[in-house]
Amino acid sequence: MIVAEQKSLEEMKALISDAEKVLVLGCGTCVTVCFAGGEKETMIASSSLRMATKLDGKDIKIEHATVQRQCEWEYLDQVADQIKDADVVLSLGCGIGVQAIVERFPESWVVPGLNTTFLGLPSEQGVWVERCAACGECVLDITGGICPIARCSKSLMNGPCGGSEDGHCEIDKDVECAWQLIYDRLAAKGKLDSILKLQPPKDWSSSRDGGPRKIVRPDLRFINEELEE
């Protein structure tokens, strides 16, 4: 899932300070399950902003709503009136949500209430960890299902470096050494051969380094065109 966290109340307040009418818009997908921008968080954030702006002596009308997925226009259309009616939409969706609103409603002013942080999973109650860097060329087959691109601090393909100690990375004792994990897993599976080979330089062109990415699926487009006919 996409993992995000809320900006501070102070930051959110600053983002809506010039508005008279604000819509706080939550999202029912990734940010709901990471408790950053779901229905509940959206309700709490809007009441907090209502109180905080009132205490500051400001009269800002703050409404809230939550759609199932901010990153798909059809869901945004369901709250089109509220979006158009607001001076500022404070999105509690991820960065994709913010941009989806901007693209669908170019006349609206949309600001981010979350910091979109990473692609990851909840490892325990209240803890989320990064697992994927969306590099566009998956290497998990080589490394036993543990990603060195997302989880090694240096994204090494021929790790571990000299900074691995007692299972953690030298940059922080709270960071696991991905290469220790890879080594342990491959050793247990009798598959160390896979990391004894020199891995060539990675092709980063499929990653962000190749410019903004796009996937076109002719098979699906064909169906759509047929439907349109």
Binding site: S153, C161, P201
Partner: peptide
Amino acid sequence: DHQAFGNHPTSKNVFDIDSLQ
């Protein structure tokens, strides 16, 4: 060394290739 250790911890690192490559 990772830039977190140095005097520009907010910098972007590269690591396009690693030492073996």
